[in-house]
Design a protein around this nucleic acid. Structure first.
Lengths: 185, 185, 185, 185
DNA sequence: CTCTAATCGAGACGGTACGTCGCGTCTTACG
DNA sequence: CGTAAGACGCGACGTACCGTCTCGATTAGAG
């Protein structure tokens, strides 16, 4: 049995935290992230103003947390599959997951949050990047940047402009335009 | 016959406008764009606060103007060269020009202005995009998005992380990672 | 049963409000009211700028409140005494009270606030004016105007030019020059 | 032949000056004096903005000039008639003159300019005040103040509230309520 | 009847104060 | 006795006028 050392959190804390995260995602779907105020969020969450700051030091911190969790889930699914031999499987896993959580990802990629997402995405991508996954002539840091950027742009285009496109076709585009070019030798 | 160059403006207007644009570029190099206030800009420009709004309705409008002008110059040089047959020439023209105006582009690509630049860039790119410059299997709007995004990311990486890289090598990367994949059939 | 004295307000509100009112009175003594800025007042009060507007919609509103309260107190003392038979008692009550609160009244009557005071004074005077207190040949509204105006002028002259004059003598002047002429038949 | 010594002014100056004075009087009839901007006045006058300041150092200066001229005319007519023996003649001259220039005086007495008028009026009144025109028990400066104030109030009431009242009746009120009480011994 | 200097219109400019808004802290009263 | 409600200090916003100034265009009136 594992002694759950860390933080045994008050039930109310969990409730407030959930409310805040849900409220952010809900609001970001209808309004630009930077036109959103902390007061909007707490009103939507049905939570006291000061309570927000007991959970997050700023609006950005909440966004980073929400986006970060979502990205962690995504990375856990796709990164292990990423081998030079079969990039298609990884691409498909990615688009399938995003397609399944469409609402959340639409909110994150629209409404001005995309740039925050990009940063969080890049942080995680550098951790899993291995030298053998990019071509020798391509500096690895640039490879990561382009991989993240291309992925974000394709997903945003998909969810924003062509939501009917099946995830397999998006995976194909992702593989062909972003992954493959970086692995070409 | 005198070539009446459009609007003959008061000399003071020109002076203030120049001061504002220069100030923005100068400040953006040292501080994040969104941590910049209009008051910072006018202080740097040595111009009265209200004068800012006589020239631009907002901080964003000034940035868009500055970035837009720079982009217009860039597009004028590179777009005419963009043919499917010889994309390398166009890439080289682009990186050479950016390298020549290194300070300005460094300022625009660092400091949080990159997302604004991306938007302005895309506006101009859709105007020059022709069906024969992207593959049939690639929706043209997505092609433009990825072209712009990839270009911005590579330039930002170059100027920020590897300023010593010769422009020819950057052009090679640009061509291979961004242009070619979109033209592949 | 607890006598709930109307609106039980936050202690901070009371503190800020007091500070603002005191600051206005203090500043108005040294500088013309219309040369006074809201920023001056909040600086004197040791209160944030925005806080001013959380209490009053404008500088005038604060003055009207301060002057109004002072006038309410004055009217409560003098109006009941105002009978055609014995106007002297009323006049004396008035000058005695003003003399007792000399600093406040000096501030209100000097420094350009007199015209505001006049208006507030008139509002209250019309409420207590009774037909039998002015002569038949004198329209009552004009009677009120002249009564108020004359009173204000005499008080201002007293406090500004002849502060040593005893209140009894001022009451005599007030009665003879302002009250009596309007009651003469 | 009269040698026009003084300033032989440029015809354009005279035109601009007239336009400004007329514009002020015209505007003051419809809007409160202190809600009036210099730009409003020059727009109404059809005169350039800077031109205003070539004629008057401030908005107040223009008002004082306009009001002052009007008062000079009034004083020239009424002051000579002011004798203890026959104050009625003087009162009548005053109300008759104001009635004849009704529009101008209405503008000056309404619209917040009354307090400026009061000051200018008082300046002129102290110059013509003679000891024998006020009672011994009444300090002369207070006599002047009350005379001016009462006159202004009565005129304002007349023009604002009871414009149909014949000037003779106003003169009667003025004499009985303002002049006589100050001369009573 | 011309020429020249005064005057003008137009309006940009540096300032100052306005009143609003949102932030993040801190207090207060209530349940 | 903890928490929501919200007052507060702060500081940027964008607006409105102020009074100064620069700029050509025009126009009076002296020669």
């Amino acid at each position: 049995m594992v002694a759950l050392t860390a933080k045994a959190r008050d039930a109310r804390q969990v409730r407030s935290d959930d409310a805040l995260r849900t409220a952010l995602l809900s609001l970001i779907g209808h309004r630009a992230y930077d036109k959103l105020t902390v007061r909007d969020i707490v009103a939507e969450a049905g939570v006291g103003y000061a309570t927000f700051f007991r959970h997050y030091p700023s609006k950005d911190a909440l966004l980073d947390k929400v986006a970060g969790d979502e990205l962690d889930e995504l990375m856990a699914l796709t990164a292990p599959l990423l081998t030079p031999a079969d990039t298609r499987t990884s691409s498909l896993a990615l688009t399938a997951h995003v397609g399944a959580r469409r609402e959340v990802w639409t909110a994150l990629l629209a409404g001005g949050a995309a740039s925050h997402l990009r940063v969080e995405f890049a942080k995680r991508a550098v951790k899993v990047a291995r030298p053998d996954t990019v071509s020798p002539w391509l500096p690895m840091d640039l490879g990561v940047i382009l991989g993240v950027s291309g992925t974000v742009e394709i997903l945003a285009w998909w969810l924003r402009d062509k939501p009917e496109t099946p995830s397999e076709m998006v995976a194909e585009l992702l593989d062909r335009l972003v992954i493959k070019p970086a692995m070409d030798r």
